[in-house]
């Protein structure tokens, strides 16, 4: 095997010169050089920057900045619900689920609205993932917290038959979603910097009173066929997605 010495190098240089003479390459202009540099830049991995964080990471980060008061309140609701589930009758427990589930979701929703409450829309729109995505992540956390707060009450209450369980889950999801939709619509039309807690509090109180007064209506609703519950659930889910989309559009500062 021969080594690559000065003699070889001279030969290679000569070959290159001959080839360049045979196949002339036009010298690119400044603009072309600049464009090539720009293009190469797009092919390189950007260090430290800037990949879209995974949903899990977004959730983890958002969780660290979720208001501790909101989390504590969820656990209080959970403890109270469990205590009721153990102590009281089934009917009483269902009422507790009905009353506590809106409170749980509306408290969580204050977290979803915090971009608007603190006037951060403008700034958050300039980040890699903006207000719309943030809202969805916060909504997922809110629903997660809500689930943690309310679902165990259902289990402890002894409804371990799958059919009952599914019915109950859907039954409390629907009032919670109704509240969420209502509050999202209100939030759309309230001026920036309004604290949504002041809207949510009285609304929950009103809803609770309404449910207590209308006990027969409550029973009627719970005893309805599961297919009806499912249809209503899908219908509400569609409306909710539309409202969230509208919320996103309205937050665009236009």
């Amino acid at each position: 095997m021969t080594s690559f010495n000065d003699e070889n190098m001279t030969k290679v240089k000569k070959d290159v010169e001959v080839n360049l003479d045979t196949f002339p390459v036009p010298t690119p202009n400044e603009k072309r050089i600049e464009e090539t540099i720009q293009f190469i830049g797009t092919l390189l991995d950007k260090e430290d920057q800037v990949k879209q964080p995974s949903l899990l990471k977004k959730l983890r980060v958002e969780w660290t900045v979720t208001n501790r008061l909101v989390i504590s309140l969820q656990f209080l609701i959970l403890l109270f619900g469990l205590w009721m589930g153990i102590q009281a009758s089934i009917e009483m427990t269902i009422q507790v689920i009905f009353l506590l589930s809106p409170l749980s979701i509306v408290v969580c929703l204050t977290e979803c609205f915090k971009t608007k409450t603190f006037g951060m829309n403008e700034l958050e729109w300039t980040f890699k993932y903006g207000t719309g995505q943030l809202f969805i992540v916060r909504l997922l956390i809110a629903l997660g917290l809500h689930f943690i707060a309310v679902a165990p009450i259902v289990f402890v209450s002894g409804f371990l038959s799958i059919k009952h369980l599914v019915t109950l889950l859907i039954v409390w999801l629907i009032p919670a979603m109704l509240v969420a939709i209502f509050l999202l619509i209100i939030s759309l039309y309230t001026p920036i910097h309004w604290n949504n807690v002041y809207i949510i509090g009285p609304f929950w109180l009103l809803l609770s009173i309404l449910l207590i007064v209308q006990q027969n209506l409550l029973r009627l609703w719970i005893e309805m066929d599961i297919t009806i519950h499912l249809c209503v659930f899908v219908f509400l889910l569609t409306i909710m997605m539309k409202v969230i989309w509208k919320y996103k559009e309205a937050s665009s500062l236009e």
Partner: peptide, 13 residues
């Protein structure tokens, strides 16, 4: 904490 949070929203590793 705020800057760490914003940094994550900006997608910084």
């Amino acid at each position: 904490d705020f800057l760490m949070y914003i940094g994550t929203l900006k997608g910084i590793a």
